[in-house]
Design a protein around this nucleic acid. Sequence first.
RNA 1: GAGUCGUUAGCUCAGCUGGCAGAGCACCGGACUUUUAAUCCGGGUGUCGAGGGUUCGAAUCCCUCACGACUCACCA
Length: 493
Amino acid sequence: MPEEEILKQRIDKLMRLRREEGIDPFRNDRWDRKETLSEVNEAYAYLEPDAHAADVEIVTAGRLMTIRRHGKASFATMEDETSRLQLYFQLDATGEEAYTFFKKWVDTGDILGVVGTPFRTRRGELSIQVKNYTLLSKALRPLPEKWHGLKDTEIRYRQRYVDLIANPEVRETFRKRALVVRTFRDVLERHGTLEVETPILSSLAGGANARPFITYHNALGVNLYLRIATELYLKRLIVGMLGRVYEIGKNFRNEGMDTMHNPEFTTMEVYWAYANYQDMMDLTEEILVACADALGSRKVTYQGTEISFEPPFKRATMVDLVKEFCGVDIDALASDEEARRVGKTKGLEITGKETRFGILTELFEAYVEEKLIQPTFVLGHPVEVSPLAKRNYDAPDYTNRFELFVYGKEVANAFSELNDPLDQRERFTDQLRKKTEGDEEAHAFDEDFVQALEYGLPPTGGLGIGVDRVTMFLTDSRSIRDVILFPTMKPKS
RNA sequence: GAGUCGUUAGCUCAGCUGGCAGAGCACCGGACUUUUAAUCCGGGUGUCGAGGGUUCGAAUCCCUCACGACUCACCA
């Protein structure tokens, strides 16, 4: 039957229900649920087959997922946010009127409030013998198929509510996501970190290499950008003497999308005054281990590969990793020209402008990243690709920075924050030069941020973690869309 | 942005070399007082993603477009 036909039929049925029975299922304002289905399942797990707890009254509610109608006794499977449980409607127990009403008016998908007694059937299934019930809401559209569920990715993402009804494991994934976020907060609060909110709308989108979304403010008559990172505002707050701050929120990047990238995604960024990137490494480890523990295990299987979040995570410098996986010792190369030559032999596309540090970074991305399956801290990024990180004063071409890779993907990025306003100004200028050379993703020059640094930023450790990616790895989700409730979709024309 | 694959009933899917549009579940009607993918009897409910082309004839072959999935490029 075409869906419109079913809808029409169900609306007609609703009208008849109102007219013939004087009952409007949408009139109910609340239901005094006394227990959830998982509470019932736990409390009466002890019942033996065919045993009734006849003196107990259960008051619960949920959605009917399946109905097995018989002549004078019917079964239904009810599901709520915690569990599922079988209902037993028996003419002798409900009375003729209520039983007939059930057979005539109640459909799968309907929300029911029920009162009854727990028992276990001869076949061994815990059930509720329904004494009476109330139709709390009516479903006018049919549920997806009960056996195969809903698989169509397009419907799953566009109509997530249907996905959530049909696939309990999807609900579980989003509960885990909430637990991950809560664990982030727990750890950060334990370290005396203040949760703050900074602007999403701003006249300048900085703090990362990315193209922003542009929007327009009518009253001000100006273009505003959606933020691409929270970094620069949070560091202003450290200047402002808030000591330790963090923000969990969405960033927006106007770039391609695939299984690892959604245009809006969630990050946690944290900044601690008087700390450095080493402290941030410890914090990263602490947060990830706490998340793994919260979800049950430090060893997780991601897409068939076991990943261990048992600390300490592996640590290595970018230079050493490139040496190990690619056989190129950047420090041994005398000039940029030589580096470009070596890069070319390794298959890099060379424009002639690369420095040896650019080559290092490209070799790392080409040869190393995908090999870093187990959690690995990569240290010592070149200054050239780290416009906001503090220089390593023993090796001035490199920064006190790390990125954490898991399953070949970047999960965290952290550094000792650059707090020298003069150096920061130079690096922004360098980014500006890159921008005029055509690099659309070069950082914007944030004059106000430099000015903030001129008031004095204490030595500060900063860290950003991709919340969606952490959730993916801990829930074995192959696409970022599986951990975002309403992922960005192209509108259907 | 490029390539590959996909789109058939509400859902999950068949549909061969071009020859009447199919199944299970769901849904509608009937029987059934412990079923659980209930069973039994009866009912097919469709713009075969959209548009164009080839052909006597197109779900099927060709082209264009839309949307999705995967791979790649960019990126976290």
